[in-house]
């Protein structure tokens, strides 16, 4: 089953930071599509609920040095 979840990252300090997070998230197993927006800090992930879960996404974002908040 495919589902969509959202996070907010308020501490992106440059557009490249958003790109880096987007690439990292897209490499997580089970992720179908990712959108990360520098301007609003909105992260939208479409994923397969059988393989991936939102906690992994939060960890991935945190690993890059940013603070995810649930939207």
């Amino acid at each position: 089953m495919s589902e969509t979840t959202q996070f907010r990252v308020m501490d992106f300090d440059c557009p490249t930071c958003a790109t880096t997070v987007e690439r990292a998230l897209s490499k997580v197993n089970g992720v179908e599509s990712v959108e990360v927006h520098y301007s609003t800090g909105r992260v939208e992930i479409q994923y397969d609920t059988q393989i991936a879960d939102p906690i992994t996404f939060e960890q991935t974002i945190a690993n890059q040095g940013y603070t995810p908040q649930s939207a």
Partner: peptide
Amino acid sequence: AKTAYHEVKSRTLGI
């Protein structure tokens, strides 16, 4: 440096 590591890993060239 940690973010830089991820930047290099994901082949983005950031500040």
